[in-house]
C-alpha cells in the first residue's frame, strides 16, 4: 500500500539555532519536500526514542527545508535538545487544520503569542509577510519570561522594518543582570496598544494554556468576536489523524479538526485551557 498513514519521511538536521536557554530551532532537510499549510503540524521522530507533534516555525512557501522550534520540557524534547547537526530525524504529516489565510485577507490581523507558542506564529508571520500586500496590517504581540527567553531575537529588527507590521514585545520580569528597553508585564498587557477595530479583525492566539485563556478572555472584552479568535490547541496529538484519541476535546480532535480552532467552535467544551 502506498498511502500508509504511519509512513515516515526521513530527514537530516542541517542546522541548529539555540534561540534561548530552553528553546532551539532545528533546521531540517527532509528527503523529499513536505508541503504544508501554516498552522498545520508534523510528527517528528527520533529513531528508537519516540515521536511528538510540533508545528513548523518556517513559512509554508518553503517546503524543501523546514524549521521546527522546540522547548526542552520532557522525555522526547530532552533528547531533541541533544541532537547534533547531521543527525537523522523522521517526519510524518503534515496533519490538521491551518490558519485560514483567506479570512485574514484585507484585514487588520492581531497575533498574540507567548513562550514557545511563538513557533507556529513565526510560521504564520513569515507566510503573511511573503504576501504582505494582501493584508491591511499585522499587529504581533509577543511575550516571554525574561529578555534571554525571547525568541527569534535576530529577526525582530528586520520584521519591524515592514510599515504594515507592528511588532511589540514584553517580558514577565527583567533579572538584574539583563537589559530590556521594551514593555514589562504578561503578554496580555500589550493588548492596550492595539489600535485596530476589534469587531472586524481576526486574532490568532498561541502560547502556554494560562496565556491562551486570559488572552482570549481579554480579546472578548475588547470586543473581538468569538468566531474571529483562532486558537492553536496543542494537545497530545499522538497519531496525527484522529485515531489514537489522546488529543480529543470533547468530540473534537485537536489533530484532525484542529489544532487551529475558532474559539466559537470549542468554547462549550470543558478543560480546553488545561
Amino acid at each position: 500500500m502506498n498511502n500508509n498513514p504511519y509512513k515516515v519521511i526521513p530527514g537530516e538536521i542541517y542546522d541548529i539555532v539555540q534561540e534561548s536557554p530552553l528553546i532551539r530551532t532545528l533546521r531540517i532537510r527532509p528527503e523529499r519536500p513536505i508541503p504544508f499549510k501554516t498552522g498545520q503540524f508534523i510528527e517528528l521522530s527520533l529513531p528508537d526514542i519516540g515521536e511528538g507533534p510540533f508545528t513548523p516555525s518556517s513559512s509554508h512557501f518553503i517546503s524543501d527545508v523546514m524549521d521546527v522550534t522546540i522547548m526542552k520540557t520532557g522525555f522526547l524534547t530532552d533528547h531533541i535538545h541533544q541532537t547534533k547537526k547531521g543527525d537523522r530525524i523522521g517526519i510524518r504529516g503534515p496533519f490538521g487544520s491551518n490558519y485560514p489565510l483567506d479570512k485574514f485577507a484585507g484585514k487588520d490581523l492581531l497575533i498574540l503569542g507567548g513562550g514557545c507558542g511563538l513557533a507556529p506564529l513565526r510560521s504564520l508571520f513569515l507566510t503573511l509577510i511573503h504576501e504582505i500586500e494582501k493584508y491591511k496590517s499585522i499587529t504581533f504581540l509577543a511575550g516571554a519570561k525574561s529578555p534571554k527567553d525571547c525568541l527569534f531575537k535576530e529577526s525582530v529588527e528586520e520584521w519591524r522594518r515592514y510599515s504594515k507590521v507592528k511588532f511589540l514585545r514584553t517580558v514577565d520580569e527583567v533579572p538584574s543582570d539583563e537589559k530590556w528597553s521594551e514593555t514589562v508585564g504578561v503578554a496580555t498587557v500589550l493588548l492596550k496598544e492595539v489600535k485596530i477595530d476589534p469587531k472586524t479583525s481576526p486574532a490568532v492566539v498561541c502560547g502556554p494554556p494560562i496565556m491562551m485563556k486570559y488572552g482570549t478572555m481579554d480579546l472578548l472584552k475588547l470586543g473581538f468576536r468569538e468566531e474571529n479568535i483562532y486558537l492553536s490547541m496543542e494537545k497530545k496529538m499522538y497519531c496525527g489523524f484522529g485515531q489514537c484519541r489522546h488529543c480529543v476535546i470533547g468530540e473534537h480532535y485537536a489533530c484532525k479538526d484542529g489544532p487551529v480552532f475558532p474559539y466559537s467552535q470549542i468554547k462549550n467544551e470543558e478543560d480546553i485551557w488545561e
Binding site: Y6, V8, P10, S45, L46, P47, D48, I49, G50, E51, G90, Y238, C239, Q243, C244, R245, H246
Partner: peptide, 24 residues
C-alpha cells in the same frame, strides 16, 4: 475501544512504528 500509542522502534536505517493499545 481503539485508542493507540505509536512507538518508534527504529533500528538501523528503516524507520519503524509499532502501535499498541492505550487507555484513557
Amino acid at each position: 475501544c481503539y485508542c493507540l500509542i505509536l512507538n518508534d522502534e527504529t533500528k538501523g536505517q528503516q524507520f519503524t512504528k509499532v502501535r499498541s493499545y492505550d487507555s484513557c
